[in-house]
Simulated assay, not measured.
Amino acid sequence: MGTSSADTARYDRFVADLFGVMAYGELSAFERLSSDARYSPTLHDRAVIGRIAVIEFEHYELVSAKLAEMGVDVENAMLPFQSAVDHFHERTRPADWYESLMKAYVVDTVSADFYRAVARFVDPGTRELIQQIQSSEEATGVLRERLKGALADDPRLASRLALWGRRLLGEAVTQAQRVGHEHAFLGALFVEAEPGATDATARELMRGITAEVADNHSRRMVQLGLSG
């Protein structure tokens, strides 16, 4: 990583963008889960989804606090990514409770995979925050077990949820590519972190991350008893 003031300022801008998209992702997840909880089939399920929503908001607060430490207004950091994230959620409105569960699970796990991959290319402090947010298995485990229970109770859900999971993955990858193209901050991070790297190298790294995310998703679907 460069040591000039220009290099430092550029890298700080990359990190602020990264935290901006993370913050809005966590905030929108909180809003979405809070709304979806209303359609829970039982009060227990409503409480479970409500707890997961709280976890998402706690993550938002962690990222927001980090941005504040950097002297960056969290709203200004999030605004450039609001349209892309909102577009993703508009295109992936669940039809019922079960699709809501699957969406929460896929978004949670795919975003975690993506940010863990990005963490390889950033400074230790930024990596630590990413790991702190993405290392929690509480929400992931609850969603996974609830999906397993739903599929055991009604095996007819399998084909529909498998298809829905594939669509969610495709939409998530498309969103990541759109954000990367519009803002180019991930490519810049890769080039900055890898001495001698070029834009072509960055694109290749992004393809590798996308393939890794897709492989992980397929494996998780198989563990649920669904085709990846």
Rank of each mutant, 00 (worst) to 15 (best):
T126P: 03
Q177Y: 07
R156D: 08
P80K: 14
A188L: 02
A139C: 11
D73K: 00
L161I: 11
T198H: 09
S100W: 00
F57W: 15
D108Q: 09
V122R: 07
K148Q: 15
E31H: 03
R220E: 11
E138R: 04
F185E: 02
E128F: 05
T8H: 01
T8F: 06
V74G: 00
L226Q: 13
Y60Q: 06
V173E: 12
T174S: 06
L18R: 02
A211D: 13
A119I: 08
S135G: 09
K66H: 14
M102K: 08
L33T: 09
A197I: 01
V191F: 07
R38I: 12
R13P: 05
E90S: 01
S5A: 11
K148N: 06
F81P: 05
K66W: 09
E56K: 05
T126C: 09
F114E: 09
V85Q: 05
L143N: 01
V118K: 00
R46T: 11
R32L: 14
Y105Q: 07
L189C: 08
T3V: 14
P80D: 10
D215Q: 11
L205K: 13
A176I: 10
S35Q: 09
E56M: 05
R220K: 03
V191A: 01
E204S: 08
F14P: 00
V222Y: 12
E212P: 05
I133G: 06
V213M: 03
V85E: 11
Y24T: 15
R120E: 15
R219H: 13
K103F: 07
G141F: 05
V21K: 09
S5L: 10
V15C: 14
Y105C: 01
M102I: 07
G2Q: 11
E182C: 00
H181F: 14
S135D: 04
D108L: 04
R156V: 14
V54G: 08
S111I: 13
V222S: 08
Y39Q: 12
A29K: 04
A172L: 11
F30A: 00
T42V: 08
T126N: 03
D36M: 14
Y60H: 06
D123P: 02
I209Q: 15
S35P: 00
F190P: 04
D45M: 05
A117Q: 03
A184M: 12
I209L: 14
H59Y: 07
V118A: 01
S4I: 08
I52D: 01
G125M: 13
I49S: 06
L151F: 00
N76C: 03
L27W: 12
A95E: 08
T210P: 07
M221H: 02
R178C: 01
W164F: 12
Y39P: 07
R38N: 01
S159N: 13
S227E: 15
P94E: 06
D73P: 02
T140Q: 14
A119P: 00
A77G: 06
A29N: 10
D45I: 10
E90I: 03
S40A: 15
S100P: 04
H181A: 15
Y24S: 05
E69H: 12
L43T: 10
T126Q: 05
A193R: 13
P80T: 14
V72A: 02
V72C: 06
F30D: 10
D113W: 00
G25A: 02
R116W: 05
H181M: 10
A202G: 06
A53C: 06
